[in-house]
């Protein structure tokens, strides 16, 4: 009997993970929740899961994960349920700083 709680979603990967994804920008991954999808993604792309979650299994602050266009932090986090044909977007933060440091010698 088919498991209706699982579907195949499309995971969209950023250029920031190019080295870990072998250059792939999207992958079909099966799962019932975002956490399960990420676990599947980690199997497909070794080392990638560690970029997304810490040792306690919590999402890292410098990465954002969206189910379609909804930030999973405002849904149910990694427990957010996914449905067939959802798109999971993974987008690292874009940030920088400009406090003057002691000058770089060049």
């Amino acid at each position: 009997m088919p498991d209706d709680s699982h579907g195949v979603v499309t995971v969209r990967l950023p250029a920031a993970f190019h080295g870990l994804s072998g250059g792939r920008r999207q992958l079909p991954i099966e799962g019932g929740t975002v956490g399960e999808v990420l676990a599947g993604l980690g199997q497909a792309c070794p080392g990638l899961l560690e970029r997304l979650v810490d040792q306690e299994g919590a999402m890292k602050r410098y990465v954002n994960i969206y189910r379609n266009d909804n930030d999973i932090r405002v849904l149910d986090g990694l427990e957010t349920k996914v449905e067939q044909q959802d798109v999971i977007w993974i987008v690292p933060a874009v940030a920088g700083g400009s406090r003057p440091d002691p000058v770089w010698e060049s």
């Binding site: 920031a16 940030a95 700083g97």
Partner: peptide, 12 residues
């Protein structure tokens, strides 16, 4: 600080 953030986000 730039270096730290670039390292965290890993944009190319």
């Amino acid at each position: 600080m730039d270096e730290y953030l670039f390292q965290q986000s890993r944009w190319p």
